[in-house]
Amino acid sequence: MADPRGSSAPDLDILGDQVTLHPSGYVEPPQRPQDRDKEQNLVEHMARFRTSPLEFLREVSLHVSGTGWRAYNHFIGQPIFYNGFSDNMTAAVLSTPILQKQITELAEKRIAFEEKEGLLKPNDPSYAAKKTQRKNGIEHSLQELCEKMTGDMICKMESRPFIRGAYYMCTQLLTRAYHQGIHVSSEEVLRLRAVAREAEKNKQSIIFLPCHRSHVDYVSLQLICYRLGLALPTVVAGDNLNFPVVGSFLQHADTLLQGGFNFECFVEGGRSRTGKLLPPKFGILGFILDSILSGRVEDAIICPVSTQYDKVIETEGYVTELLGVPKKKENLADFLSASSILSLKLGRVDVRFHKPWSIRDFIREQRARTTSIPP
């Protein structure tokens, strides 16, 4: 086993802080009694100050100093940690031709409305100058609104120490609830890392499509990507789907896809309250498909993800909702104050990665099937 304090981002076999390096391609690791179907416990129960103060302090010092894989310096994917990343992403979104065209069209529609209401009078001697001035003012206001909303939805990923600290804190919280850790298939993860390397070379995005049963879904995926040295995916959720002016996430998705940045979205649209998968909503996937069909983006990689739990954290809340109690708005204070939940032993989380596939290849296959159907 490699020394965890000197190892870099692993090629896999991961068990807690112990990492075994493999050459490229899957090499079956030595069988151990605790192995089950080539599964590995990616995130184990971490040291607690009360029970093991020295080990706890050692873990904290390793994360603070960024020792080995914790530094997250050599991840697979496009660069996402540098000063000015957020500003550059915002500028890229605002400069998209589709957005600028939509702003111009909305300004023209507003001018037409004001003319109809008599606010702008064509018989006014200074009509042309006032119309131009008013149109420029409307476009400027829309630009400011877009800039503010884009800045709100762009991920702020400029601080590596913050990301390291967030990983440590999330792992601490998660392993308090799921004491048996996060389990993955080493073979699936090796395959995913190989695809990620190829996607990085071609500057293509990996679009993770997890099922959505719990808030832990996106937390566990972020932890896995960090631990395996993969570029963290941007989560498509909440206000990201309510972009003003354009009324869609298309511009931001284009920017991510054109830059080859990873992201994840939940095609179910919301969390399942029963454990069963919800009917898919193809909004964001439709935007992605349009980006590729239009030629704005060459290709992207889809990676379906399944997350299973022995028991979800939100079970009690789901029961009350199914009984007719209105859904309570989530807030961080309630989660952190729920010591009874964090102290529960909810078992384990199992994450499985389906074989990633190319959207461009999928389109070709569908077109070939269509043309081969006899009239």
Rank of each mutant, 00 (worst) to 15 (best):
146 C>Q: 04
150 T>S: 06
151 G>N: 12
151 G>Q: 06
153 M>F: 08
154 I>R: 03
154 I>E: 09
155 C>T: 09
155 C>G: 02
156 K>S: 06
156 K>E: 13
156 K>C: 02
157 M>Y: 05
158 E>F: 04
158 E>Q: 11
160 R>V: 14
161 P>H: 11
162 F>G: 02
162 F>V: 09
163 I>A: 10
163 I>T: 05
166 A>E: 11
168 Y>W: 14
169 M>E: 12
169 M>H: 12
169 M>L: 15
170 C>L: 14
170 C>G: 07
173 L>M: 14
173 L>T: 06
174 L>C: 10
174 L>W: 01
177 A>H: 03
177 A>R: 01
178 Y>C: 05
178 Y>G: 05
178 Y>V: 02
179 H>G: 06
182 I>S: 00
183 H>F: 14
184 V>Q: 00
185 S>H: 14
186 S>G: 08
187 E>F: 06
187 E>Q: 15
189 V>W: 02
190 L>T: 15
190 L>M: 15
191 R>G: 11
191 R>Q: 15
194 A>T: 13
195 V>N: 07
197 R>H: 14
197 R>C: 05
201 K>T: 14
201 K>Q: 10
202 N>R: 15
203 K>Y: 04
204 Q>C: 09
206 I>C: 11
206 I>G: 05
207 I>H: 00
207 I>S: 00
209 L>H: 10
210 P>G: 03
213 R>S: 04
214 S>E: 05
215 H>Q: 13
218 Y>V: 06
220 S>K: 07
221 L>I: 11
221 L>P: 00
221 L>C: 04
222 Q>G: 15
222 Q>S: 14
225 C>M: 04
229 G>S: 01
230 L>W: 01
230 L>E: 01
230 L>V: 07
231 A>H: 00
231 A>K: 00
232 L>Y: 01
237 A>L: 13
238 G>W: 08
239 D>G: 00
239 D>T: 03
240 N>P: 00
240 N>S: 10
240 N>F: 14
240 N>W: 03
242 N>K: 15
243 F>Q: 05
247 G>V: 12
247 G>S: 05
248 S>Q: 10
249 F>R: 07
249 F>S: 12
251 Q>R: 09
252 H>I: 10
253 A>G: 12
254 D>R: 15
257 L>Q: 10
258 Q>N: 02
261 F>T: 04
262 N>Q: 11
263 F>C: 06
263 F>N: 04
264 E>C: 15
265 C>P: 05
266 F>Q: 08
266 F>H: 09
266 F>S: 01
268 E>W: 06
